[in-house]
């Protein structure tokens, strides 16, 4: 039995990218807010946290995309 999972993978990556980006920014923001409230540093860590969260979201999505694309690339590679 043969299943082409390319569409499933594409949907998984797309939905993960969207949700994990938002979740990462919120998590970073909340961590920053927690630090700001304890260190009385104003919005510094909130802003830093949001930026770090954004980077984390993209990095996480890229990792997943790499894993799923690698297998596809191996499949499409011409055999020597």
């Amino acid at each position: 039995m043969r299943f082409d999972v390319t569409l499933g993978q594409a949907m998984a990556i797309a939905s993960q990218l969207a949700v994990s980006l938002a979740v990462s920014v919120v998590l970073g923001f909340l961590a920053g807010k927690f630090l700001d409230s304890h260190l009385a540093t104003g919005p510094v860590f909130m802003i830093l946290g949001s930026i770090v969260g954004m980077i984390a979201g993209v990095s996480g999505a890229v990792q997943i995309m790499r894993i799923m694309a690698r297998k596809q690339a191996a499949k499409n590679r011409p055999k020597a």
Binding site: Q16, V19, S20, S24, G28, V52, G53, A56, G57, G60
Partner: peptide, 18 residues
């Protein structure tokens, strides 16, 4: 550290929320 920790937690939260 921060990027990886947030990224790993966000994956799980995103799985549940989606």
């Amino acid at each position: 550290l921060l990027i990886e920790v947030i990224s790993h937690i966000a994956r799980a939260v995103a799985l549940a929320l989606r």
